[in-house]
Design a protein around this nucleic acid. Structure first.
Ligand SMILES: [Zn+2]
Ligand SMILES: [Zn+2]
Ligand SMILES: [Zn+2]
Ligand SMILES: [Zn+2]
Lengths: 160, 160
DNA sequence: CTATGTATGTAATATCATAACACGTCAAGA
DNA sequence: TCTTGACGTGTTATGATATTACATACATAG
């Protein structure tokens, strides 16, 4: 049950981020995976804003904090988070964003504002169902799908 | 009106490709754009198969045929084709595929087989409508959207 | 404590993409 | 006719994104 406008609305983001982090710990524990310092820190960095960060942006942050400064350090942590469903990859941006409601099984669509670069997770059940149905008509079995929209968020729309 | 299983079905592909090329000429003429040798050749290369090719794959082909062998040569031609609606960019693959029905206004979904790498264009009107509606609920105005599915095509499914 | 699997660090390299500039062609318009 | 400007192409150089391979450290189970 994603709240589609969470990222665009004013909200208590400290609580929002802290809550996501808490859930993330629970998710990894339940999966028997290890939430190590690098991984936790990467998730925290992604959670700072409802935006997507490139692997090298994350890496630069890590490097200043005493972690390794080579690309695999960032890519491995990001890959782990994505596998655990704690972060998502935004294909259009070659970048990553923290999941705002980890632990719940979901496959969202992403709304990317071309002006302020905010990224929101929206419910995509209906769109996915349409896509799966259309694919099935061709005999194609969908395993994973990417649904991303580029446009103007409510805030930036108001200013235009 | 894309035929969603065209790419997966046995068909007279020579005719399929030739037809797309003919339409492409008409599209560019109508737009007052120039279908130059490099651009035409790139489109022909993309039309050889219902797959996506990376810019450097295209470039390698061009280079052996006496065209320039530097990346901008390929990227510029590909960008032109995408702008004219004669090719599509597949975000998941960082690659390009020829449009199978140029000239018609369309914004398809792509079905990408993870085994044989065939890429099919499927109708995405319903999925896009769902996405736009969900975005609108958040006050987000969609300008462009990317819908791509990864999975198994009918042929590869049969073999599994 | 020691073996095993897992995580991290690092060097090197591969892959994807763009900026900047030079040159050639062609078609207005002076 | 000559000039000019738009456009396309070629090339150099660089930037941005991502992976392979190998070494080291660390946790935990036996
Ligand atoms: Zn928040
Ligand atoms: Zn915005
Ligand atoms: Zn065909
Ligand atoms: Zn296939």
């Amino acid at each position: 049950m994603p709240d589609p406008d969470l990222a665009f609305a004013a909200h208590d983001h400290a609580h929002c981020a802290h809550d996501a982090l808490t859930r993330a710990e629970a998710v990894t524990a339940a999966a028997g995976a290890r939430m190590t310092p690098v991984r936790r820190r990467v998730l925290e960095i992604l959670l700072e804003e409802h935006k997507a960060l490139g692997a090298y942006d994350v890496l630069a942050r890590l490097a200043t904090e005493g972690f390794g400064n080579q690309p695999p350090v960032a890519y491995r942590a990001l890959e782990f988070l994505v596998e655990q469903g704690l972060a998502h990859r935004i294909q259009r941006l070659n970048a990553f964003t923290a999941c705002v409601h980890p632990g719940q099984d979901h496959a969202p669509a992403f709304l990317i504002c071309r002006t302020c670069h905010t990224v929101a997770e929206a419910e995509a059940t209906a769109a996915r169902a349409s896509l799966d149905a259309e694919a099935a008509r061709a005999g194609f079995q969908v395993e994973r799908s990417t649904i991303e929209a580029l446009g103007l968020c409510p805030n930036c729309r108001g200013q235009a």
